[in-house]
């Protein structure tokens, strides 16, 4: 079950963290991967090599998804690779945890343009290639903070809430053919939030707050994306699936 053999999937923000784990998992499931990165060519190349070594096909594409034109160019190149995209996973994102008074104009814009508009432009640019697929699917990446508030990072939280509604709106508008779903990770040990999980007090607080009593790993998120892209999830669309160890339950 949950086989993705022969599928071509673009994973944005794949050079590290959750995006990288997703690319590896989808590759293990049989998919060919268009590996996107913004400014980490070495990491993207090492991921490509790992995917090819495991028997799959992979290519690297770069571009800043916060720039709509760059996003369109990158997606077009990835789409032309095999002439279609069966899946798009929008994992590219930035995080800023500033308190309200500290949020400058550029801080707000970088978060909203990358996390929200970048997701939108990536999917929008991919449509011609998704339409060439027999089983097209999109998975966006939200966060527990898309639906549950925390102190700090209000623009990030708003952008992720936007990603969730974008998921539902696109699911409806792109139906019946293209499915659009989202995963909402909890507290995950990645480079992006190293500041959090390397702080002993914060680390312990999250373990206590998470019913499954641990931080998540990128490898915990990736199988959910695999499920959502698979034929077995053919009747699932517009869903935001929390993968958070239960941290949002109370």
């Amino acid at each position: 079950m949950f086989d993705l053999s022969g599928r071509v999937v673009l994973v944005t923000g794949a050079s590290r963290g959750i995006g990288r784990a997703i690319a590896l998992e989808l590759g293990r499931a049989g998919a060919d991967i268009a590996v996107h990165h913004r400014a980490n060519a070495a990491a993207a190349e090492s991921l490509r090599a790992a995917l090819v070594h495991a028997g799959g096909d992979a290519r690297v594409y770069s571009g800043d998804v916060s720039d709509p034109e760059a996003a369109a160019r990158m997606v077009r190149a990835a789409g032309e690779w095999k002439g279609r995209l069966d899946g798009v996973v929008t994992s590219a994102g930035v995080y800023r945890g500033d308190l309200v008074e500290a949020v400058g104009r550029a801080d707000f814009e970088s978060v909203v343009r990358t996390d929200l508009e970048g997701t939108f432009r990536t999917v929008q640019s991919a449509l011609p290639y998704l339409r060439k697929s027999l089983h097209p699917g999109v998975v966006t990446v939200s966060s527990v903070m898309g639906a549950h508030a925390g102190v700090g990072g209000a623009p990030y939280q708003a952008a992720k809430a936007g990603v969730e509604q974008l998921t539902r709106a696109l699911a409806l508008e792109l139906a019946p053919r293209i499915r659009v779903n989202s995963v909402a990770p909890g507290f995950i040990r990645t480079d992006m939030n190293r500041g959090g999980h390397e702080d002993p007090a914060f680390h312990a607080a999250i373990v206590t707050a998470t019913p499954l009593a641990r931080w998540g790993d990128p490898d915990d998120i990736a199988p959910a994306v695999r499920y959502l892209l698979s034929l077995e999830a053919d009747w699932v669309t517009g869903l935001v699936l929390g993968v958070d160890g239960g941290v949002t339950l109370r």
Partner: peptide, 24 residues
């Protein structure tokens, strides 16, 4: 298929969730 996913290790960090399977 949704039950298989949730019951399996693929969903090892998923708990308390409602997986809506309704064609949208």
């Amino acid at each position: 298929a949704a039950v298989v996913f949730l019951a399996s290790k693929m969903a090892r960090f998923v708990t308390g969730e409602t997986l809506v399977v309704d064609g949208g």
